[in-house]
Design a protein around this nucleic acid. Structure first.
Lengths: 181, 181
DNA sequence: CGAGCTTCGTGACAACGTCACGATAACCTT
DNA sequence: AAGGTTATCGTGACGTTGTCACGAAGCTCG
């Protein structure tokens, strides 16, 4: 898995082949097939691994007594995870390998991450009059962050760092202000 | 191109091969290569075609005297385009074909669409105290819509139609309220 | 009617996902 | 410690895909 992660991030989706993976792991392709069944199986494991790593990043968050500021920092961690692991994030949230489509139960892989986010949203909704249910808000925030991060990675969000950052904070401020009545 | 569009939407990314494309167009693969150079060339044309189609959908929008309501309807058209052409939207906004990465100038393909959106945002910012520049707001809105649509297509936004719709309108209402100070 | 250029079909090549087959290594039972 | 069962792995092969060389066919223009 370590070799797979490094190969994926180094060579991208198109360079990620069973043969090179086997070679870099100093073994042969059938060994890969024995362990993972499919190439899709390798991708699936990367998918899970990605959510584990993301969860690890989020654990670095230390809560303060300002729930909203904590939520903003949480979303910034989410953003930097996607920025630091662009290919892995694609595997998690997009379908770069056209024959890996996570089943409904596998989508639950992110449940630990989702719970973490919902909890931090709930800290906000508890201390004030926020609009909507905490789960709904979490979905909205995650979709927004992923949309922004996808645009940023595709260099579609702006040409200079400052314009990109400005749009990120505009988006986050606006949505949180709009949510917090 | 018509055959390519239909093949793409029918067979998905993994079924989209030069051989089947040539067969369905009742020709041979070198003919495809003569016209498009690469398989990437075909994908690139689909990319442009997609923005043309999206622009055509947006043209159905008839402006009223309520700029904000118009903007909401614009974003709903954007959403239904992505929902009606999921694979094409992936080609436009994601990288399902791992060796097609639009160059910076090709990203400008969406400029007509972008201009259209910025104009409708500006109608709002002109008639009221909105936060931020119209271009920034347009970027934020597009990112939000694409994030929500990607989540919806991946069945990640909710299990029932009503929860999905509820989250869509929560997101749009919140961000527009937050923007419109 | 014929020269030059564009377009297309046949066939081939390399790389990929996948697997059958046999060989090896590991483990458990006695 | 020995033998047998199972899990693991390497060699080689097959079908499919992107790609292209080569030659044939058609069109344009004199």
């Amino acid at each position: 898995m370590a070799v797979a992660l490094s190969l994926l991030e180094r060579e991208g989706v198109s360079g990620f082949t069973t043969r090179t993976l086997a070679r870099e792991a100093t073994t042969s392709t059938p060994a890969v097939y024995e362990l993972f069944g499919d190439k899709t199986g390798v991708v699936r494991e990367l998918f899970f691994e990605g959510f584990g790593l993301l969860r690890g990043c989020l654990d670095n968050l230390i809560d303060s007594d300002d729930p909203r500021a904590d939520l903003v920092r949480l979303l910034e961690i989410y953003r930097s995870f996607i920025k630091d692991n662009p290919v892995l994030a694609q595997v998690m949230f997009s379908r770069p390998f056209s024959d890996f489509e996570p089943s409904e139960s596998e989508v639950q892989a992110g449940s630990s991450v989702r719970v973490f986010i919902v909890e931090h949203v709930r800290r906000c909704t508890d201390t004030g009059a926020w609009r909507g249910d905490a789960t709904d808000i979490a979905h909205v925030l995650v979709a927004l962050v992923q949309g922004l991060a996808a645009a940023e990675n595709a260099k579609r969000l702006g040409t200079t760092q400052s314009s990109v950052d400005r749009r990120w904070s505009l988006a986050l401020d606006a949505v949180l202000d709009g949510l917090a009545t």
